[in-house]
């Protein structure tokens, strides 16, 4: 599995994400600067990291989504490439139009930084293929704007198309239908607020996060 991590000014989970991808796949991820206009050749996965790209100016992820590399990422996704966006990366994917809905200020207005329990809502995606529906994972969150909003029409569509990847066991931020992560229509783009790359080593208190990177690696190897 050949992967790349996009780096924006203010990204701060880029290296952890690269470690997560490398541990699962055995192959180092390439780090790609946001001003580049093209992705490396032959990629299987593009990962958009968490952090505070461009200082969260205007709206979280709004400026990053308009950088040159994102045109290439959108093109990559349209051609069927796999893309994972975590936290600020999820916000960037929404701002770039790869995922629907919006992420607003947490309902309680506080920045939340803690471990939460997630429930896998589908195993029908490359990112969740090794998980069972209903399986619980402990994954940290660290965000101020993670309150996922969808109008009733979009929500029904996401539910009907089985595109909700993860739900919170105990909704921390007001997200509609407890949504913590969603998939694109072709199921190859995942955006999620919790940080799997931050709980990816038993020495750090757990490695539930690794299950997502391992699912992705297994799915890509199976389809290769």
């Amino acid at each position: 599995m050949k992967s790349a991590v996009i780096v924006f000014p203010g990204s701060n989970c880029d290296r952890d994400l690269a470690v997560g991808l490398e541990r699962a796949s055995g192959r180092a991820a390439e780090m790609v600067w946001h001003k580049d206009a093209a992705l490396p050749e032959g990629l299987d996965v593009v990962a958009i990291p968490g952090g505070f790209s461009f200082g969260d100016y205007l709206r979280c992820g709004a400026i990053a989504a308009r950088m040159p590399i994102m045109r290439a990422v959108v093109e990559f996704a349209r051609k069927g490439g796999h893309v994972i966006g975590v936290c600020n990366g999820f916000q960037v994917l929404i701002e770039s139009g790869l995922l629907p809905g919006a992420l607003m200020r947490n309902a309680g207005l506080k920045f939340l930084c803690k471990n939460v329990e997630l429930i896998a809502a589908t195993s029908n995606s490359p990112f969740t293929s090794s998980l069972e529906v209903g399986q619980r994972l402990t994954i940290p969150i660290a965000h101020h704007d993670g309150n996922y909003i969808a109008d009733s029409e979009l929500l029904l569509k996401l539910q009907a198309e089985d595109r909700i990847a993860f739900r919170y066991a105990d909704n921390p931020n007001g997200s509609v239908d407890n949504i913590a992560g969603i998939l694109s229509q072709n199921r190859r783009v995942l955006g999620m607020m919790p940080h799997p790359e931050r709980l990816n080593d038993p020495a750090l208190g757990g490695n539930d996060g690794a299950k997502i990177f391992e699912s992705l690696t297994h799915s890509l190897m199976a389809s290769a």
């Binding site: 709004a62 308009r66 809905g101 919006a102």
Partner: peptide
């Protein structure tokens, strides 16, 4: 439309 507003919300 392209940047200043998020017309979804």
């Amino acid at each position: 439309e392209k940047l200043l507003a998020n017309t979804v919300i």
